[in-house]
């Protein structure tokens, strides 16, 4: 292996690793706040990538209809669950946030899409379309069973994943799509040839992580979310609305998934079911981080990217196997060092 190949592999590792890191952070966030192992996170990535790629060629993405369905489903569940304490104001508020908002987004996208929006506008529209799916999904699928055990929530997450993959096929079709790079520039940094695409990935990933860090360490809402993760009962006792925390976590996760999708779209051809395998890689990183540590999960994600890049060079047919095998030593190590305590607070 010469230096050029080495540097390309490193770059590959860093760009993939950055995307896995965003996934891993979203998974840790959702798990910490809601105790849901959010398998469908990969679907948000696929939605984001396909949406972005379709906007680029001037097609109205199926995402708008999917978003409308999600909004209507969430609205229906909300109305049913509050049927005994219904007020006109509540109905109006719910209708505005779950029906009018997606409808407005749909209209905007239908108007803008044919003009083939540039990368910036297209990414923005993608996030705006995908992010609200998070809280809608939480409302109709998970909130009604928020107090269920981790296992039950996990089974529900798997079911949602299967359902979303199917919906993805219906709304996006079986064709794979690939977008053009966010930036076509190339930069020479010493011996390294860095693409503008890679730089955009790094910048966005680092920016998002920094933003998350500030959100959790500086804002009351960020602290409230972290508190919900640390001690759910404690959070409820100080008046933090934990269902709202769940919705905020899901909004962030969906938005991060959409951004990951936008970053991924120019790097590989994305199909309706591509999300799962990418999600699993983020999942490995999240597991290595113990599903609690953001920095550990992000570092592990870079490790996953690194292993994947070199595995695909040395043993291409086995690259997925090698990457997924990473989890075995971690699980063995965790089972050795973890104390099995029922009582996790205090």
């Amino acid at each position: 292996m010469d230096a050029t190949i080495f540097s390309f592999l490193l770059q590959d590792a860093a760009t993939n690793g950055a995307i896995y890191a965003l996934l891993a952070l979203a998974l840790v966030l959702v798990f910490a706040v809601t105790r849901i192992l959010f398998i469908p996170q990969g679907e948000f990535v696929a939605f984001g990538a396909l949406t972005y790629a379709m906007l680029e060629i001037g097609v109205v993405p199926g995402t708008v209809w999917l978003l409308l369905c999600f909004g209507l489903a969430a609205f229906a569940v909300e109305m049913y669950s509050s049927r005994r304490a219904m007020t006109a104001r509540k109905v109006a508020l719910e209708a505005a946030s779950k029906v009018l908002l997606p409808a407005a987004i749909a209209v905007a996208v239908i108007l803008i899409a044919p003009s083939k929006p540039g990368p910036l506008l297209a990414s923005l529209l993608t996030v705006v379309m995908v992010a609200p799916m998070g809280p809608y999904l939480y409302r109709f699928a998970f909130q009604p069973m928020a107090e269920a055990s981790i296992l039950v929530l996990f089974i529900a997450a798997v079911a949602i994943h299967l359902a979303l993959t199917g919906l993805s096929l219906v709304f996006f079709g079986p064709e794979g799509l690939r977008a053009s790079p966010l930036s076509g520039d190339m930069f020479e940094i010493g011996p390294l040839l860095v693409t503008g695409q890679s730089l955009s990935v790094y910048a966005l990933a680092i920016g998002l992580m920094g933003g998350l860090y500030l959100f959790f360490s500086r804002t009351l809402w960020g602290k409230a979310l972290a508190a919900t993760a640390v001690n759910r009962l404690g959070a409820r006792l100080v008046g933090i609305p934990t269902t709202l925390s769940g919705k905020v976590a899901f909004t962030l996760a969906a938005a991060m998934g959409a951004v990951s999708g936008v970053l991924l779209a120019p790097m590989t051809t994305v199909y309706y079911d591509t999300g799962f395998i990418i999600g699993l890689k983020g999942f490995i990183a999240a597991i290595i981080g113990g599903l609690v540590s953001f920095p550990l999960a992000a570092a592990a994600a870079l490790g996953v990217g690194l292993v994947e890049a070199f595995a695909s060079f040395y043993a291409s047919p086995f690259k997925e196997i090698i990457v997924f095998m990473l989890i075995i030593p971690v699980l063995i190590w965790r089972s050795l060092v973890t104390h099995h305590v029922e009582d996790e607070e205090e």
Binding site: K223, A224, A226, V230, N231, L233, A235, L237, V238, I240
Partner: peptide, 24 residues
């Protein structure tokens, strides 16, 4: 309510615990 098990935010600082007490 100050519950029997206290239910503090064990991984956060004393001040953050207090600030969150004033969430409302």
């Amino acid at each position: 309510l100050v519950p029997e098990r206290r239910e503090l935010f064990a991984t956060m600082t004393v001040e953050d615990n207090l600030i969150l007490g004033g969430f409302r």
